[in-house]
């Protein structure tokens, strides 16, 4: 308990004081709102049903986008590691997707998809190449001696996947999924800010900005960060449990 206070509580208190003192020194809520102003904005958001609905819609969009990107990325990672033809076909396209700026995707998709779907597609497109790359690297790390044994002992595809490929790919895959989730949040919320679906945390951010409500911008940011941390915590817990099965 004392250690937790020292590691988390004290640094938090320090930065909170820095924020409070800097806000007083600046003296303009438009530039830097004080912690009390942000707390008031948060309380207002918490008391409004629409805010909860917007936050929930954002959460679902990011989860959907990340899910699509993670599943497709893992499948393509396996396919491009296993088949030279798949590698030739998909790998250059996935490398290209990785280098395209997120804002280009947002603007391109804005013309072709309903505004509520754009953040989902953008989050998926950002997660996809990261997961693909980590899955490919992980599968390529499979021990060739164990692979030869699996062939000689006629394990079959499912057993070889379970006993050789998945344990080899687990470290790279978990790192890839965690990174991809962070990217999905950042890109998905950016897409919401630009596309402004009716129910979205990003739309809340944009509205607060339009009304010069800096405390509201910070309050929505806090909401997004809290949701992101919660989802990341659940994912890390699940991945840790999965990887624990492959510990030596």
């Amino acid at each position: 308990m004392r250690e937790k206070l020292q590691n988390v509580g004290l640094p938090l208190l320090f930065w909170f004081l820095v924020w409070e003192l800097t806000a007083r020194w600046v003296g303009k809520e438009l530039i830097l709102p004080a912690p009390e102003a942000v707390a008031r904005s948060l309380a207002t958001l918490a008391g409004t049903g629409d805010s909860w609905r917007a936050a929930a819609a954002t959460l679902l969009r990011i989860l959907a986008g990340f899910g699509v990107g993670a599943v497709l990325g893992t499948a393509l990672g396996a396919a491009t590691a296993a088949s030279r033809w798949c590698d030739r076909l998909f790998s250059p396209a996935l490398r290209a997707v990785r280098t395209v700026p997120v804002v280009s995707f947002i603007l391109l998709l804005y013309f072709s998809l309903p505004t509520a779907r754009v953040p989902v597609a953008v989050a998926a497109l950002m997660a996809l190449p990261v997961v693909w790359r980590s899955a490919r690297q992980g599968i390529a790390a499979a021990d060739p001696l164990l692979l030869e044994l699996a062939g000689a002992y006629r394990f079959g595809r499912a057993k070889t996947l379970r006993l050789v490929y998945l344990p080899a790919a687990a470290p790279a895959l978990t790192a890839g999924w965690e990174t991809a989730l962070g990217l999905a949040w950042k890109s998905g919320v950016a897409a919401e800010v630009l596309c402004q679906p009716r129910w979205a945390a990003g739309t809340g951010l944009q509205s607060a900005k339009a009304y010069l409500d800096t405390a509201g911008v910070v309050a929505w940011t806090v909401v997004i960060v809290l949701m992101s941390l919660a989802v990341e915590g659940v994912l890390k817990w699940a991945l840790h449990r999965w990887r624990r099965g492959y510990e030596r």
């Binding site: 164990l146 006993l163 344990p167 510990e247």
Partner: peptide, 8 residues
């Protein structure tokens, strides 16, 4: 070589 699965 033994070729055992370290996690089994």
């Amino acid at each position: 070589e033994d070729r055992l699965f370290p996690w089994r």
